[in-house]
C-alpha cells in the first residue's frame, strides 16, 4: 500500500473540518475524492502533503509514518501535490518553475524536463515566458509539469479542471489518463464528479468532513445517491 490515511481529524482553529477520514491508495491506482464545496477534499490533500497536520489519526506513505512530517521534507519522499488554484510562480519563467519542481530531485534534470515537455509541448514553446503571462490552461499544465519533475511516487491533483474551458478540461484529463497508463499513482480531487469517476479505479465520496461512500469508479457512477447529488440526476 502506497498511502494509508487512518481516521484523521483536522481543525481550522475551532472548526472541525475533517472528522475521521480513512482511505487508501495502492501503487499504480488512480483514486478520486469527490464531493461538494467545503466537504474537506482540499484539506485532506493539504494534510497528506504536510501543509496542515491532523489533531489525531495517522498517515502512512510508503510504510513510513508521515503524520507530522513537514511539507518540504515530503517532496523528497516522492509525494507531489498540485494545489488548488495552481500556485505557479508568476514572476518566474516556465523553465525556472520547472527547475523549482526539481529542487529536491537527484535524478537526471534534462531527462525529466524532456519528459515534461513531451507531455506538455506548449510548455516547451513558452519556456522563456514568465508564469504570469500564461493562460489558465497553460498554468495548469505548468503546475502539473512542475510536480512531475521529481517523477513522484504519488501525484496529488487538486481540482485540475477548475476554471478551465471544456476543451481544456478534456485536454487535461487526457493527459491524466496518459499518466495513469504510464503507471503513475494518482490521487485526484475533483468537483467534476463525472470525469473523475470515469478516470478513477476507485473513488471516495466526502461529505462535510466524512467519507460517506466508496467503491470503484464505475460503481459510484451508477449509484443513485451519487447520480442525484453530483452527476445532475
Amino acid at each position: 500500500m502506497l498511502l494509508k490515511v487512518d481516521n484523521i481529524h483536522v481543525y481550522y482553529g475551532a472548526i472541525h473540518a475533517i472528522k475521521g477520514v480513512s482511505f487508501e491508495v495502492n501503487e499504480g491506482e488512480t483514486v478520486a475524492l469527490i464531493g461538494a464545496n467545503g466537504a474537506g477534499k482540499s484539506t485532506t490533500l493539504k494534510t497528506i502533503s504536510g501543509l496542515m497536520h491532523p489533531k489525531s489519526g495517522s498517515i502512512q506513505f510508503c510504510d513510513k509514518d508521515i503524520t507530522h512530517m513537514e511539507a518540504y521534507r515530503l517532496v523528497s519522499q516522492g509525494l507531489a501535490h498540485v494545489p488548488e488554484g495552481r500556485h505557479i510562480f508568476l514572476q518566474m519563467t516556465v523553465q525556472e518553475n520547472l527547475e523549482m519542481g526539481a529542487f529536491t530531485s537527484k535524478g537526471n534534470f534534462d531527462a525529466n524536463l524532456d519528459h515534461v515537455f513531451t507531455l506538455f509541448p506548449r510548455l516547451k514553446e513558452r519556456r522563456k515566458q514568465v508564469g504570469g503571462t500564461l493562460s489558465g490552461g497553460e498554468q495548469q499544465m505548468l503546475a502539473m509539469g512542475r510536480a512531475l519533475m521529481i517523477s513522484p511516487k504519488l501525484l496529488m491533483l487538486d481540482e485540475p479542471s477548475m476554471g478551465l474551458a471544456p476543451i481544456l478540461v478534456e485536454q487535461i484529463f487526457s493527459i491524466i489518463r496518459d499518466l495513469r497508463k504510464a503507471g503513475t499513482t494518482i490521487l485526484l480531487v475533483e468537483q467534476n464528479a463525472g470525469m473523475a469517476l470515469d478516470i478513477a479505479d476507485r473513488a471516495y465520496v466526502l461529505e462535510t468532513g466524512k467519507v460517506t461512500l466508496s467503491g470503484t469508479g464505475e460503481e459510484l457512477a451508477h449509484s443513485d445517491k451519487v447520480k442525484k447529488a453530483y452527476l445532475g440526476g
Binding site: 502533503s49 518540504y72 517532496v75 505557479i88 510562480f89 514572476q91 529536491t104
Partner: peptide, 18 residues
Amino acid sequence: KAMRAVSENRQAAELMGI
C-alpha cells in the same frame, strides 16, 4: 532562485521541497 520562489509564494515553495 529558491529565495525568489519563497518570496513569491511560500506555500508553493514548500510544495517544491524548499
